[in-house]
Structure formats: C-alpha cells, structure tokens
Amino acid sequence: MVRFENVTFEYIRRDEEGNVDSITTALDELSLHIKKGEFIAVLGSNGSGKSTFARHINALLKPTEGKVVVAGYDTTDDDNILEIRQRAGMVFQNPDNQIVAETVEEDVAFGPENMGIPTDEMQKRVDEALKKVGLYKKKLESPNRLSGGQKQRVAIAGILAMKPDCIIFDEPTAMLDPGGRRMIVETAHELNKKDGITIILITHNMEETVGADRIIVMEKGRIALEGTPRQVFSKGEETLKKYGMEVPVITALAQKIGLDGCILTREEFVDAYVKALE
C-alpha cells in the first residue's frame, strides 16, 4: 500500500539573499513497507520526523532523495497527486484548522467536490460517511458548534467520502479530552476492521498504540524501533525513554513487579497476576 525507498527529506532554510542558512534532515534514508489493511502506530518525540513522514504519504511533501510509492503511484510525478490524495486521506491535529465549509454536510462534501463527483452520487457519499462516524443528525449544523472530538469525526467523514484506501492520522487526539480521544481511536479501529482501511496513527499517547498491528518508533528521521506493541514495549522503560516515550502504565507496572511476558491490557494483567499468585 505504502512503500518508502531510502527516503531523505531536507528542510532548507534560506536567509534574505536566498543563501542556504541551515539544512535540517527530517527524514534520513527511511525505508518502510506498509501492507494493505495494516494498523500502524507511529511514535517518537517532538521533532523526530513523524509529521514529515506523514506528509510524504499524502504527497504534501516530496522526497529530496529516494522514492515514495502509494497504491502504486509514485509521489514525485505531479500527474499522480490527485490519485494519491484521494487514496490516502489525512486527519490533522487541530480540529478547527481543517474544516473549510460552514455546514457539516458541505464540509464533508469538500473532497468529493474537488474530485468532481456528480451531485447525486456526492449526497449519497456524504450521508454514508456521516452515518459511519455517527454525525448524520448534525449534518446541517455549523462546525463551530461541535466539540473537538465531533469536529475530528467530521474531518474523518470528509476523507471517507473520498473513498480512501488509507487514512493517516497526524496526532488527531492531541487537542481532545479523554472522551474525544477514545472516540477517535475507536473510530480508527472500526474503519480498519470493518472496511479494511489501512490506518497510520501518529500519536504521543502510548495507550492508543496498544491495539495496533505494528508500532514504528522514529528518532532523528530514522526508524529506531519497529515491531508489534508487545515487542516494542518489552524493550523496557530505559530504552523507550531515549525516544521520548513511556511504557504504557499497565505494562510498566507488570514489568516492575516482575510478571512474565509483556503485558499490555488490564485483562492480561489480572490473569498473569492470578497465575503468579498460584
């Protein structure tokens, strides 16, 4: 679905005369393959290159060196851009700054409008997408009246209406309260399971990554750690701390009292503890 081949990306900062002032390497020879239907969580400290990585999948950024291929389309070819963006949608961090229109329904239609979908078909897609995220009843309301979590779901619906194969979430829960967070992560999992949409979730919240198929930990534009949540979190607190991460609380507690195996959920913990007591 998504393939990165030795991708390097440099932010070049220039002074007033246009001379190169500084070069920051945000991605450093990154190679990665994401399969269709996978649920990937991307972790890493602020400035580790996560957002730059995400923007390459949607062709908002293009590699300085190397190649990114999304659903068979090379992002460096300008003719492919609309195809890529329709297939790989993106949900951003700030709920306010990604809603364009004055009603929920019109905002969800924004993507399909850009794609030139005929009106009848469009209304169907919009309604379907809104039902999927549970906001059909709000379709005529102003987005300004919605909560943060609801706005993020409008953004998700806006992408669903484009019928994507893949959705990239760039810290979608950072500005939400716990209720809103839970809802967004649940929605992402549901889309992954029911509709087979590939999900790439960038987050700072360790608990949100527990249900992922694979975790990728980034540092300085490279992949520092990779594996199932169990594999990654069993590396222990010290290793993860280096990358600006923490072990999920439950896992950390299990490690501290010496329970065997890498425990991720509360159920697993209770079972393991009972066993240890016997």
Binding site: R55, N58, L60, L82, R85, Q86, G89, M90, F92, N97, Q98, V100, E105, E106, A109, F110, G111, P112, E113, N114, M115, G116, I117, P118, T119, M122, Q123, V126, A155, G158, I159, M162
Partner: peptide
C-alpha cells in the same frame, strides 16, 4: 495544507453538493 490534502486544486473540474 488540509485543503490540498483533500484534493483541492482550484475551481477547475469542481462539482457542488
């Protein structure tokens, strides 16, 4: 950025809800 990510490319070929 968000508009571009949603295939916005000006008024050309745009339809309306």
């Amino acid at each position: 950025e968000a508009m571009e990510a949603r295939c916005y490319h000006g008024g050309k070929g745009r339809t309306k809800l």
